[in-house]
């Protein structure tokens, strides 16, 4: 639940989601669910020349399982809060 809760705090922020097929999408985080499926709004693909078929796509749903990385906005990472939440999770889970 830790990362689900954390991603909910990022709603409205801009993130870059890197997929396992190497596609990287930057967009505004619209929503996230317990599987870490992600909806992004006003997206742009990082390497547009390589993926021109994505040019007309504005919004998308990304299945959690195909995500490799999410680049997080530095201003939205509260390190202390993450440490505490992780320790709580380690004890309970």
């Amino acid at each position: 639940m830790l990362f689900y809760s954390y991603f909910k705090t990022l709603v409205g922020k801009e993130v870059t989601v890197e997929l396992k097929n190497d596609l990287a999408i930057t967009g505004t985080l619209h929503s996230v669910d317990q599987y870490l499926n992600i909806k992004l709004n006003s997206i742009r693909v990082v390497n547009e020349q390589k993926y021109p078929h994505m040019l007309s796509v504005r919004n998308c749903f990304v299945r959690g399982s195909v995500v490799r990385y999410v680049q997080l906005p530095p201003g939205s990472v509260d390190v202390e809060l993450l440490h505490d939440a992780t320790r709580r999770e380690a004890r309970g889970g």
Partner: peptide, 11 residues
């Protein structure tokens, strides 16, 4: 270099 990165566990 990336400032902050979430990494999905299955990888």
């Amino acid at each position: 270099m990336v400032p902050y990165l979430f990494v999905r566990g299955d990888g």
